[in-house]
Design a protein around this nucleic acid. Structure first.
Length: 219
DNA sequence: CCAGACGTTGTT
DNA sequence: GTCTGG
DNA sequence: CCAGACGTTGTT
DNA sequence: GTCTGG
């Protein structure tokens, strides 16, 4: 599954990699739920890059705290769950990253790993977003979709975030594509041969920590 | 009909 | 808002 | 995801 | 144990 990731590339590097304009923001070695994530969101009106709050707060929520529980959505059921099915048709997004963390909890210990794609190139998670209008604030938030683990990740975990390649990204962001079966078919485990994994320090466990040493190979 | 949930992960 | 359960 | 709090009253 | 915050 996916509950922590990195975005350490500069804005310029990301714009070059995706051929799109991105807003200003800070790099992070430890992006955690509840924080702002860089996303490209589509709707019937427009497709736009911006910073969204990680942890989906549905428009109907009467308490924004529900977002703490909605950091991921299962690909297998995203087209049927009441909280997500409507968003699959109308509010899809990409969440921009260049690595993500996953913990292996064998034998009572928790060993974190960092996983990268295409020799540490930036990539995109598949996500859904929504806008919540509270009494005193409006929050635009998102969730990251998960699927079963590929061969690379199976050893440490049975789930992984959905990563979309360039072709799939176009379809995912196409507001005219509303066929839920077509969209759902994009939500597959990523090609393991294009990914790499290495252990990192447990210092990453705390969301308060955020510095370059977090992505160094440990041991 | 109204009330209440709406989610994932992992562990037992 | 929409679905499920009672 | 993990870490850290989880409570009230009253006083500074 | 469970919820909140980052």
């Amino acid at each position: 599954m996916c509950g922590r990731y990195t975005l350490v590339n500069s804005r310029e590097a990301l714009e070059k990699a995706f051929g799109a304009a991105f807003p200003e923001g800070n790099e992070s070695y430890n992006v955690a739920p509840s924080q702002k994530v860089l996303a490209v969101a589509s709707s019937t009106e427009q497709t736009k890059a911006g910073w969204l709050q990680w942890g989906l707060i549905p428009s109907w929520a009467d308490d924004k705290k529900i977002g703490h529980k909605m950091i991921n959505a299962r690909a297998e059921s995203v087209d049927t769950k009441p909280a997500f099915r409507h968003l699959l048709e109308r509010r899809r997004c990409l969440v921009i990253a260049d690595g993500f963390y996953e913990w292996d909890r064998e034998g009572g210990t928790k060993q974190p790993y960092r996983i990268t794609v295409d020799n540490e190139e930036p990539f995109a998670f598949a996500g859904l977003w929504d806008r919540w209008e509270g009494k005193e604030e409006t929050i635009t938030s998102c969730t990251i979709i998960t699927t079963e683990a590929n061969d690379l990740m199976q050893n440490i975990h049975h789930r992984m975030p959905v990563i979309l390649d360039e072709e799939a990204r176009k379809t995912w962001l196409d507001p005219h594509e509303t066929d839920k079966q077509v969209l759902k078919s994009l939500l597959q485990p990523f090609d393991a041969s294009r990914m790499a994994i290495y252990p990192v320090s447990t210092e990453v466990n705390s969301p308060k920590h955020n510095h370059a040493a977090l992505i160094e190979r440990k041991g």
